[in-house]
Computed example of a mutant assay.
Amino acid sequence: MQAALALWRTKGFADTTVTDICKAAGVSKALFYVYFSRREDVLLAIEVFTVHDAQSAADAVLTRPYELVDLIAAIIGTLEAQMRDYPPELVFETILETYRLERRILNEDPTEDQLTVLFLDPFRQAERDGKLPAGTDVTRAARIAQTLLTDSVRRWAASEFRNGPLARALAEEITDLLDTAR
């Protein structure tokens, strides 16, 4: 995964082949295909680590007194920090692969946890802590937050990250939306 990331940063996603990744990593194609079906699967595997880091950031916020906006900003901020290390093209590819994965999941009778990976558990805890408005459909709120995040990241990457920091402004937008939805 590190070799793929290094190549994608320097050579670009479109111009990097599985052969390039294998040479840079010092592994055979056969070994590559034991773990991945295609290079896009490497991108999804990297995304799993990014999501894990975002969930850890949310868990850290939940261990102390917090406001909902701080919880959301911690999740988005972790993603933002990691995305800034990627070329915009790679961010777009990640979003496309996430959409493809979602489509596959939707065809398999998904659980809500599969469709709201980033926000569902933190929002459930925020609900228990009284941080979400009473009567909030937590699953729907998590889905909306994730959709807004994906769309905002896409637009932010299109500007080549020139539109300033993403986390706080988007966290405030999502928080305001949830607050007015009661």
Rank of each mutant, 00 (worst) to 15 (best):
Q82D: 13
L120D: 07
A126D: 12
F32K: 00
D121P: 04
K29V: 02
L31H: 12
A142C: 08
L115Y: 12
Q82C: 01
I95F: 05
A74P: 12
A14P: 01
V117I: 15
L148N: 07
R104A: 09
F123K: 00
E173A: 12
L101P: 01
V69Y: 01
I21S: 00
M83G: 04
S159C: 06
A81H: 09
F119L: 14
F32C: 02
L96R: 15
D176I: 08
L71V: 08
I174L: 07
Y99L: 15
R9S: 06
D176M: 11
I144A: 02
F161G: 00
L31V: 15
W8Q: 04
V27K: 03
A167P: 13
P110L: 02
T10W: 00
L96T: 11
Y86I: 05
V48I: 13
D113M: 07
D113I: 08
A3V: 10
K131T: 08
R143D: 13
T78R: 02
S56E: 13
A145Y: 02
E108H: 14
A141S: 13
Y99V: 14
R124Y: 11
T150G: 01
M1H: 11
L31F: 08
A25H: 06
V153T: 13
N107K: 11
W8E: 09
I72Q: 06
A157L: 04
Q146N: 06
L149H: 03
A157M: 04
A57E: 10
R38P: 04
E127V: 04
A25D: 14
